[in-house]
Write a protein that binds this DNA or RNA. Sequence first.
DNA 1: AAATCAATCAACCGCGCGTCA
DNA 2: GTGACGCGCGGTTGATTGATT
Length: 316
Amino acid sequence: MGRAPCCDKANVKRGPWSPEEDATLKSYLETHGTGGNWISLPQKAGLKRCGKSCRLRWLNYLRPNIKHGGFTEEEDNIICSLYSQIGSRWSLIAAQLAGRTDNDVKNYWNTKLKKKILVGKISLSIKNSSTNAPPASVTNIPTIPCSTSPILYIPKAETESTVTFSDHYSLTQSSGAFPTLSDAGYEPVISSTTQNWSQNHFQYSSFPGIVDMSEFRASSMNSHIVSPSQEGSTMSDSSSLAMDNKGLSLPSTHGGPEEVGILMDSELGFPSDFVNDLLFQDRESEVAANCFQYFADYGYVDMKPQGLNQGVTNHY
DNA sequence: AAATCAATCAACCGCGCGTCA
DNA sequence: GTGACGCGCGGTTGATTGATT
């Protein structure tokens, strides 16, 4: 049995809103507010509309101080920066842009920004660690709780260390901060055989709000969890997180802030699929996106299957 | 001028989550 | 503990508009 519909679709008007309907809704909301219940609102307001439709209309068009179109370059940068960190959390991204709605930002991204990036007008990039800070105007990004976006807090290594993401994948680094793997579907996976750090080694994200240590569950660090979603993963044996010349921005040579792009080469068809679906494929995209800032610290990180190539390489 | 294609964006849909009885 | 309900979200659709042939 499916979910009951939110309204009687046979008796509600659909499609574009008329100026009269807009005026009715706006007038009612300005006088009475939502009353805490959108479902019953259209009836009270005398509208033959679904409550959800009313809510959408109000939030996206009728409420005060809404801006449409004319995205500035700074807004572009903010959207790109946040997308690279948190993915398609449009409501969170929109919350950082005054007067913008999630629908607007989403449409803008899908129709314009993606293309700008593809033709190189904008680079989806992140500055190197020395300047690894959010744009000045990006503040107070809400915390993403573990329940929706479990974050793997990986200890800062003092020497070469390996973190295993599943039975088959690991990341190795020589020094500096580890990348963070954050993904809504991938459970944090750390092999107990390769982890023996104490909690005081943990490093906080330099992006306030993105990492919330209060959500940290230390117990996960000691367990060897293999997510069902990881088993039979679509990642190929040659999956790698690397910077090469296939797209996005390229890492510069040393000296000065570097812009770093991350691509995932997988059997899912990258880079051709990149053209159709900018930030990679499904889960991979989120993993890559959430690793952005941390890989920027590396210059180059290979993510290779264990056992096939033990010589995981770091290039600096 | 007409037909076709592409781009845009408002609106809809279904799902996850939180709340409450 | 559980089911119903409403809200909010991201993904998708489809009508409209503009550009091209």
